[in-house]
Design a protein around this nucleic acid. Structure first.
Length: 828
RNA sequence: GCCUGGGUGGCGGAACGGGUAGACGCAAGGGACUUAAAAUCCCUCGGGGUUCGCCCCGUGCCGGUUCGAGUCCGGCCCCAGGCACCA
């Protein structure tokens, strides 16, 4: 036993022992409750950074804690290994993306091992492994057969820098989520997953995710963006296909005085054709197409439009409504056409003012009468219908229902629900991703790759030049293939899948990472899933977390899993900041975990990250704070070593505390109070910062008690009990130092196998307690009384307190309140 | 504009059924030990006043409920994140 605290030495020692004893490898055991804790797996970018360390430390504490609580814990780790950075790095350095990726994985795995995380390493997986993505290809084929994977031509987001398309979720404020380049729309034929088929369920099930942060739920609700309203058909005055609009305000239909079309609407140019307005409309649309539509610019654009020269008819009033093309109407939402109700929609109001279009009030607010002539702004709230035929006099809400039903009956429209959510665009014109298992045949069209031929392996003999589009398209050995249907000449799909596809189901595969008979081993997956606790950054609120929910539902419908939702509880941990900003190479404020481990050890690094802030909040890195954590571990070490020679042979205290004299009894009470406090902080809230603070207090008290009772033989069992409790409580957070001290106490099994300590009820009971006395709500005195005094007795004791007597000066109090046996408030 | 968080010492943060505001840690100041420094240990540490007993003020701002409000209610200000011409 060494007496100096040398963190690196003992951390290596224990990491080796844990691995040898295979302590963290979990098997299915129906006799024990299971607990699946998972942290979002990393992209193998090269090095583990402090954000990872924080994320994985939180998860590791949970895993180790739950094991001590008797759970059969699954805690796996793997690699989100496909992605563009590998290609870029490869091109810049002449490496192959595969070797770059696998080298990074090897290095980062080493880092994670040095950090001492309790992962079930045999379950490790990398998504770029053909043994992983082959199952994804199989799922793709199943989805294709069911119409959940399909190809269509559509205007899609193109990032010129990444030279690939992006899903809507991956465009943030008009910029590429990965490289911040402005994205523009391009008409391309692309692969989509039909996530909109699950829009309703994805929205509804959010209500059952009680243990998800409210803001994530809100972000997903907003993203899905359900609105209930009606589709209404407006016949053209001159005949032809009517114009279909979507509105949530069918109660304002009688006030619709003109029609607005999106510039991309197919009717925009078609209608104008042959009218005197044709040139003007063409001009307007051309101008609009050239317009920079990135965020910010868009907000500044004034509402403009142009008359098409044609009219449609209001289906209920029969009025002629001029049809305009307007720059604020979105083709992507609804039907790309809007019935304009200037009195009750601000945009339409402004548009009507500008072009001198009629305004007609059809909704009256309570207690006021609006007049079209004097309207200064649209009245957008609900109210009572006026001038609306048989619906006049009804309130907006019931009128909406009635009007939708009426339109449906009259064949002029129907009740309808629209979503903001679009289908998930998953094809990427890149090399380093999972190939889409589709073959094109002149004769047979699109054919899926035969299941026995899976995986469609990503060829490695590729040269990445960065020019000429998708690298796979330039590889005849890959593209040329015989059609599985007719045996004729076929051509492989050269797009690869969005890497978010891999991360949408990896948490399922961990349950049976070695399974070779199919996508998932149903038995094992049913045992482990859902994930009980998922931990990761907020940045995935509507990306990964939405896709993963979608995939889980698809897998369920493919009869691969039985769960509806993948993640029971979600913790979104805050960022690690330095000097008030997110750590970044470009800002020069990066703290390398390796340096911290070298200088102070893993335990200190973990301790600081847990102590500096509660997990969901951002954490400001502080070198001094790290030293504070290190100091604390030294104090623990020194305390233990001062006592060890005498504690080795002492047994832990066994009694109820009744036989202990004042100081010792109080110290023992503190021990049990700390057990209670730490258990609550970890179990209910994951507030490791206050849990650590409580143990710090206990250790401070321990130093005092060790001094006060240095010579007392009967103190030794109490001290032994206290030290054991401290080691047990701290183990999940700082596992190495506690294992070392546990061993020094004479144990030869890992602390991980010891049960979590239990606070003893008798030890918590206090003989005397301090009661706070307030006068008119202000603290004026404190008295010590025997435990178990009744409220009237307490009141009496308080009134007899000399300080109270002084304040009372003989008066009788107006009122005395006794609160929870802890506080007396005297009102005078 | 809408939605979700959040405003507490010099700093990170506690106060989880309304009941001792500032636990724990960092920094700072003073002292002990040392030839000296580091390390370690002890004391002080929201502001103001003080007869050193205590007293007054204080949790973004204004008001309310209550014996009692950081905590509840109403109104406002500021910060962060998300969405944003969504019909």
């Amino acid at each position: 036993m060494i007496s100096r605290y040398e963190p690196r030495r003992l951390e290596e020692k224990w990491q080796k022992i844990w691995a040898q004893r295979r302590l963290f490898e979990a098997g299915e055991d129906p006799s024990r409750p299971k607990y699946y804790v998972l942290e979002m797996f990393p992209y193998p970018s090269g090095r583990i950074h402090m954000g990872h360390v924080r994320n994985y430390t939180i998860g590791d504490v949970v895993a180790r804690y739950k094991r001590m609580r008797g759970f059969n814990v699954l805690h796996p780790m793997g690699w989100d290994a496909f992605g563009l950075p590998a290609e870029n790095a490869a091109m810049a350095r002449g490496l192959h993306p595969a070797s770059w990726t696998y080298d990074n994985i090897a290095y980062m795995r080493g880092q994670l091992k040095e950090l001492g995380y309790s992962y079930d390493w045999p379950r490790e997986l990398a998504t770029c492994d053909p043994d992983y993505y082959r199952w994804e290809q199989l799922v793709f084929i199943e989805m294709f057969k069911r119409g959940l994977a399909y190809k269509k031509k559509a205007p899609v987001n193109w990032c010129p820098k990444c030279e690939t398309v992006l899903a809507n979720e991956q465009v943030e404020g008009g910029l590429c989520w990965r490289c911040d380049s402005p994205v523009h729309l391009q008409e391309l034929e692309q692969w989509f997953f039909k996530i909109t088929a699950y829009a309703d369920e994805l929205l509804a099930d959010l209500d059952h995710l009680e243990h998800w942060p409210e803001r994530v739920l809100t972000m997903q609700r907003n993203w899905i963006g359900k609105s209930t309203g009606a589709e209404i058909l407006f016949p053209l005055k001159d005949g032809g296909e009517p114009i279909k609009v979507f509105t949530t305000r069918q109660d304002t239909l009688w006030g619709a005085t003109f029609m607005s079309l999106a510039p991309e609407h197919p009717l925009a140019l078609a209608l104008a054709k042959g009218t005197p307005q044709e040139a003007a409309v063409q001009d307007f649309v051309d101008h609009w197409r050239a317009q920079d539509r990135s965020r910010g610019v868009l907000e500044e654009i004034t509402k403009e439009g142009v008359f098409t020269g044609r009219f449609c008819l209001n289906p209920v009033t029969g009025w002629e409504m001029p049809i305009y093309v307007a720059n604020f109407v979105l083709m992507e939402y609804g039907t790309g056409a809007v019935m304009a109700v200037p009195a009750h929609d601000q945009r339409d109001f402004e548009f009507a003012q500008k072009y001198g279009l009629p305004v007609k009030v059809v909704i009256q607010p309570p207690g006021e009468e609006l007049r079209a002539e004097s309207l200064k702004a649209a009245y957008e709230d609900e109210g009572v219908l006026v001038d609306s035929g048989e619906f006049t006099g009804q309130a907006s809400a019931p009128a909406k229902e009635a009007i939708a039903a009426f339109l449906e009956q009259a064949g002029k429209g129907r009740k309808a629900v629209h979503f903001r959510l679009r289908d998930w665009l998953i094809s990427r014109q890149r090399y380093w991703g999972a190939p889409i298992p589709i073959i094109y045949c002149e004769k047979c069209g699109m054919v899926t790759a035969p299941e026995q031929d899976l995986p469609v392996t990503l060829p490695l003999d590729v040269s990445l030049t960065g020019e000429g589009g998708s690298p796979l398209a330039q590889l005849p050995s890959f593209t040329n293939v015989t059609c599985p249907a007719c045996g004729g000449l076929g051509r492989r799909e050269v797009d690869t899948m969005d890497t978010f596809v891999e991360s949408s189901w990896y948490f399922l595969r961990y349950a049976c990472a070695d399974y070779r008979e199919g996508v998932l081993d149903r038995k094992r997956v049913d045992y482990w899933l859902p994930v009980d606790q998922y931990i990761g950054g907020i940045e995935h609120a509507v990306l990964h977390l939405l896709y993963a929910r979608f995939f889980t539902k698809v897998f369920r419908d493919l009869d691969l899993v039985k769960i509806d939702e993948p993640f029971q509880r979600l913790l979104t941990q805050g960022m690690v900041l330095k000097d008030g900003a997110k750590m970044a190479k470009s800002k020069g404020n990066v703290v390398d975990p390796n340096d911290m481990i070298q200088a102070y050890g893993t335990d200190t690094t973990r301790l600081f990250l847990l102590f500096a802030a509660p997990p969901e909040r951002d954490l400001e890195w502080s070198d001094q704070g790290v030293m504070g954590g290190h100091r604390f571990l030294h104090r623990l070490w020194t305390l233990a070593h001062n006592l060890l020679p005498r504690l080795k042979d002492a047994g832990a205290y066994q009694g109820t505390g009744a036989d202990l004299s004042g100081g010792l009894g109080e110290f023992r009470r503190k021990v049990h109070q700390t057990i209670q406090k730490v258990s609550g902080d970890i179990e209910d809230r994951f507030h490791f910062n206050t849990a650590i603070a409580a143990v710090m207090e206990l250790i401070n008290a321990f130093y005092q008690a060790a001094e006060d009772h240095a010579q007392e033989e009967k103190a030794l069992p109490v001290f032994r009990e206290a030290l054991e409790a401290i080691l047990l409580l701290l183990y999940p957070m700082v596992p190495h130092i506690t294992e070392e001290l546990w061993e020094a106490l004479g144990y030869n099994t890992s602390l991980q196998l010891a049960p979590w300590p239990q606070a003893q009820a008798e030890a918590l009971a206090e003989a005397a307690r301090t009661v706070v006395i307030q006068i008119n709500g202000k603290v004026r005195s404190r008295i010590t009384v025997a435990a178990g005094l009744s409220d009237p007795e307490l009141e009496n004791a308080a009134l007899n307190d000399p300080v109270v007597q002084k304040w009372l000066q003989g008066q009788t109090p107006k009122k005395v309140v006794v609160a929870r046996g802890k506080l007396v408030n005297i009102v005078i």
